[in-house]
């Protein structure tokens, strides 16, 4: 059975793009799939340099690749995952895809005319927009999941798990580059009583509002997390002790002078803050312990104040226990 008639209609109706170039990278043939999408006529582009017709194509890279196909007589490939498209062509999902151009997979094949021995390179172009769209959506939801996984559901600050991971990272960085690093631990004063007097909803509102207020006082690089119930912690990278104490005092003052409104009532609240500074002799856990100890001392001293860790605190704590 003779099937010589097949290739003509197949090229006409093929749901992939076919571009045939000669050794000078001039256009010999383009099938209707490409002509229609690029809005060009085969007769008007035949014999023209491919890059004079598709002016946006990555010329330096693509011509190097096409020349590798010709000189090595080996196929080459381009995948949408590495290069989203070679040619700016529209796709058929203009509504559901945010991306303007068709994502493309391309096979570049060496071909030889059996009659003349003339060598050509053929580009087969497939629409990979669907895969591209699915992958983008997947990445988007992964990103969202990752974010949710890092944040505290109530206050929107970092959750304890992620905050502690970040502390390890920052401690390593500070140790490696000899940068200062400080830590603040703070606790809402008499939070239990607030819950008892006004209800847990009021307590939640106070947590949310205080976290929002403190967040607005911090730099982009500071890492603010919820450590437990009403206990919060802030990593201050590149900050020596004096700077950290200043931030802590500002937090203390602003919280005390900013009442939280809950059901037409103005709830007054305050925080006690413990401050510690990293040095290469201590671990992340010890840094937390020191800030926690200072916080404990701030509570004992009468709340609504800042205490900085110093080794003497350990002795005073021992006295309390005995």
């Amino acid at each position: 059975m003779n099937i010589d008639w097949l290739s003509g209609p197949l090229l006409q109706q093929l749901n992939s793009g076919v571009i045939l170039l000669n050794k000078q990278l001039q256009i010999i043939y383009i099938n209707p799939y490409i002509c229609r999408r690029a809005d060009i006529q085969l007769e008007t582009v035949q014999g023209k340099d491919i890059f004079s017709v598709f002016t946006d194509a990555p010329q330096a890279w693509l011509s190097r690749k096409l020349n590798s196909v010709l000189s090595l007589q080996s196929p080459a490939f381009s995948s949408w995952e590495q290069r989203q498209y070679l040619f700016k062509l529209p796709h058929l999902r203009p509504v559901s895809s945010a991306n303007q151009y068709m994502a493309q997979n391309c096979n570049m094949l060496p071909l030889t005319d059996p009659a003349t021995g003339e060598q050509y390179v053929c580009l087969l172009i497939e629409d990979a927009t669907d895969a591209y769209v699915y992958q983008s959506q997947l990445q988007q939801s992964n990103l969202q999941l990752q974010q949710v996984n890092r944040l505290d559901g109530l206050t929107g600050v970092l959750n304890r798990n992620y905050w502690q991971q970040q502390l390890e990272v920052e401690v390593q960085r500070a140790g490696r580059y000899q940068h200062p690093l400080s830590l603040l631990f703070f606790d809402l004063d008499k939070f239990k009583r607030l819950n008892d007097d006004y209800g847990h909803q009021a307590g939640d509102v106070v947590l949310i509002e205080v976290a929002r207020l403190i967040g607005s006082l911090l730099r982009e690089t500071d890492l603010f997390g919820r450590y437990g119930g009403e206990e919060f912690a802030i990593i201050l990278p590149d900050t020596p002790l004096e700077g950290a104490i200043e931030v802590a005092k500002r937090i203390c003052r602003r919280v005390a002078e900013s009442p939280v409104v809950f059901q037409q009532q103005r709830l007054m609240t305050s925080v006690s803050v413990g401050v510690s500074q990293f040095n290469t002799a201590i671990t992340a856990d010890e840094l937390i312990q020191q800030a926690d100890l200072a916080l404990y001392q701030a509570k004992r001293n009468g709340r609504n104040q800042v205490v900085t860790y110093h080794p003497g605190l350990i002795d005073s704590l021992k006295k309390v226990k005995s």
Partner: peptide, 11 residues
């Protein structure tokens, strides 16, 4: 990497 790999492998 994919470019050099396809060149080395297919050749």
């Amino acid at each position: 990497l994919t470019d050099i790999s396809s060149i080395l492998t297919t050749t």
